[in-house]
Nucleic acid binder design. Structure first.
Length: 361
DNA sequence: AATACGGGGTT
DNA sequence: AACCCAGTATT
């Protein structure tokens, strides 16, 4: 019974949380949704609404990308009741460009639930019941907003803990699933009294020190106790399965102008870019070939403006952009938006790319 | 367990 | 061009 892993005992990392918190007290990033460790030690706690909002925005999204959206949302809707009272179209428009648009729909749905409650849910079970809140977000909000004795596990913390405790399987999907389970269990054994700061400290460590490539171990508060560093294989952790390459899909975009306006249509609520405004388009199924003749939404004198390229999660789109200036208003459903306003109308990035090509010329 | 679902940064 | 994400919901 003597490999390195089975000899793990809690005391190996007995002071780990304390050492990390000492580092965090000096090095904490200042973020719009965050209370400083000094403020928290004085007994202040953050507004749970702001913590929840930030964590939804930060799902699979970097701090620099999310921060301006957080500022905008809290300016437009300072309290959860304000967000709950907003029109869904406005929420979707303001979210445009952040990606994973189901988050925006669930955010608004969740705000309506929260506005009907007497207090913000403050147990893991109650948080998990909210739309758009999964295991990570429940633990993040629980610890950061309420100091519940739990640790969130996101990609950063998976990496930090897998290195600290040398947790890595064979790199298969099944092996990684097992690793994640073990990481989630083991990190709980480290959680100190200041669980909110501990969670934020691990995120800061992952973001600024224990980076995926070339981690800066020399300035790490866990330098001496990190098992991966003792092995000298920091970068081999975590052992994640390879992602499979994405296929390319082709499609045609149809940007229709009429009397200084452009026609946009709202996509169905579910599925890719759900609920977002976009130019008209052919389908873009894998292996599909679409011709102007067969797929034009209206007979017109179409002009080719170039190809908009965009990478989604599981495929890349090569979208050939055609424009038409119609003198007679076509019989097509959708919203006619002033040309000057259309780039601020709340389009997802791929829609903006196509529109920019169409407006150049 | 696998897939759908954006977008941008780093190397 | 490959890799990395401050994940959740659905199948």
């Amino acid at each position: 019974m003597v490999n390195a892993k089975s000899t793990f005992v809690k005391s190996d990392f007995e002071n780990a949380a304390h050492e990390l918190l000492q580092w965090y007290d000096q090095m904490a990033r200042r973020l719009p949704w965050r209370l400083s460790p000094q403020a928290r030690k004085n007994g202040d706690m953050p507004d749970p609404y702001r913590v929840w909002l930030s964590e939804i925005m930060l799902q699979q999204t970097t701090v620099p990308h999310a921060a301006p959206y957080f500022d905008k949302f809290t300016r437009l809707w300072p309290k959860v009741e304000d967000l709950a009272a907003a029109h869904n179209d406005d929420v979707m428009r303001e979210w445009a460009g952040l990606g994973y648009y189901a988050r925006a729909r669930n955010l608004h749905k969740c705000a309506k639930v929260l506005a009907g409650l007497d207090a913000f849910p403050n147990t893991i079970e109650a948080l998990l019941a909210l739309p758009g809140v999964g295991p990570y977000t429940a633990a993040a909000v629980g610890s950061i907003a309420f100091d519940l004795p739990v640790a969130p596990v996101d990609g950063n913390i998976e990496r930090v803990i897998s290195r600290l405790m040398a947790i890595a399987g064979d790199g298969s999907a099944a092996g990684w699933a097992q690793d994640k389970k073990e990481i989630t269990q083991r990190v709980q054994t480290l959680v100190p009294q200041r669980s909110g700061d501990f969670a934020q400290a691990m995120m800061d460590l992952g973001a600024s020190v224990c980076t995926p490539k070339s981690p800066n171990c020399m300035i790490c508060p866990w330098m001496d106790i990190c098992l991966a560093r003792q092995e000298g294989n920091q970068e081999s952790y975590p052992a994640k399965p390879k992602r499979k390459p994405q296929p390319i899909r082709n499609g045609l975009a149809f940007v229709i102008f009429h009397e200084g306006k452009v026609l946009l249509q709202r996509r169905p609520d579910s599925g890719l870019l759900g609920g977002m405004l976009m130019p008209l388009s052919s389908p873009w199924e894998e292996g599909g070939e679409y011709t102007l003749e067969d797929y034009q939404p209206v007979k017109a004198d179409w002009h080719y403006r170039g190809q908009a390229r965009h990478v989604f999660t599981h495929f890349a789109l090569h979208w050939d952009v055609y424009v038409a200036h119609l003198t007679k208003k076509p019989d097509l459903s959708g919203d006619w938006i002033d040309i000057d306003m259309c780039l601020e109308a709340g389009l997802p990035t791929v829609g903006r790319k196509a529109l920019k090509l169409a407006l150049d010329a």
